[in-house]
Simulated assay, not measured.
Amino acid sequence: MTELSGLPQGGVPAAGRLAGKVCVVTGAASGIGRAVAERFAAEGAAVVATDIDRDGLGRLADALPQAVTTVVGDVSRDDDARRMIEAAVERHGRLDVLVANAGVIPLMEITEAGADDWDRVMAVDGRGMFLTCKYAVEAMAGADGSGAAGHGGAGGAIVCVSSISGEAGQRGQAVYGPAKFVASGLTKHLAVEWASRGIRVNAVAPGTITTERVRRLQDEPGGPEYLEAIEKLHPMGRLGDPAEVAAAVLFLASDDASFVTGAVLPVDGGYLAQ
């Protein structure tokens, strides 16, 4: 279901680093995705927020100072992924930025995981990222795939949300980590493939971030011990905040990063520097 707000067609605030930009953020109902949607809106973007969580999207829309387009759907479903991108084009006439953030984060060792666990994570974190990037590239490049202004498309920016687990090995990440290697790899391949068409593709690799999912670990068996151990592995001695990841995503999505593509930017308190 696509729910359109009362914002006039193409209307966006007049100031900010993303003023006039049309941006789709997947997995926007909570965590990093919500922080990105909030920051983008504050920077003047016309935001299309997507998630499977209808209630969470409603709370996001209520919290933003200007109207937002919300799309309820599952990124792993081809029709839903296409509809998320089409909502931006139909509403605002184009797509400038995609933040491919939607994902699930199970914590398990390979002996605890089954094929169903693998398939579920790869469906969302892998297939879902592929599908949303695919339809975003098509929208940014235009119908003829030229991707240049005046040739059916004006280019754009894609930011994939990877992870430190998509750059290095971690305990308890036998299912989630490989899916984030997909995110990092897809970023690099698309960056090379579409650079000449004016489409930049980058990623962020967050460390452990205090999302709702991470905060719930405090109440789960073994959770407090896990959090204590993982915090010590970050040289800055603390976990990150979703707003800190959103700030990095903003940079990569903005014109400030006009000569940056194919990068995977750690936002991890020094974790990957070790």
Rank of each mutant, 00 (worst) to 15 (best):
G153R: 00
L190E: 01
D117R: 03
I158L: 07
T208C: 08
A141S: 06
N101G: 00
A123H: 03
A139H: 07
E112G: 12
R127N: 07
G142C: 05
H189F: 11
G153V: 00
G172I: 10
I164S: 03
L107D: 08
D119P: 04
G172L: 15
A139G: 06
S196T: 13
S163K: 03
T208L: 15
H189I: 13
E112H: 12
I199N: 02
G147I: 02
V137R: 00
L186C: 09
E90T: 08
G169D: 14
G152I: 01
D116E: 15
E138M: 14
A183K: 01
G150N: 03
V99T: 05
G166R: 00
L190M: 10
G152D: 01
C160L: 15
S165L: 09
V121E: 08
A168C: 10
I105R: 14
S146D: 15
K134G: 02
R200Y: 12
D119G: 04
G198C: 00
S163N: 05
G155W: 12
E112P: 05
S146Q: 15
G172N: 14
G126T: 00
V97F: 08
V175F: 14
W194Q: 04
A149V: 15
C160K: 10
D96M: 11
L98V: 07
I199E: 02
G114C: 03
D125R: 02
G153D: 04
A203W: 08
R200Q: 09
F130A: 07
E109F: 15
D116H: 12
R120V: 05
V161Y: 07
E90F: 11
R197E: 06
V121D: 08
I199V: 11
W118S: 07
Q170E: 06
I110K: 10
T132S: 05
A141W: 02
L98A: 06
A100V: 04
A174G: 07
G177E: 10
G114P: 04
V104E: 04
G198T: 00
G103Y: 13
S146Y: 12
D96C: 10
V201Q: 00
G142D: 06
G152N: 00
A179M: 06
P206G: 13
G145T: 11
V99I: 14
W194K: 00
M129L: 14
M129I: 03
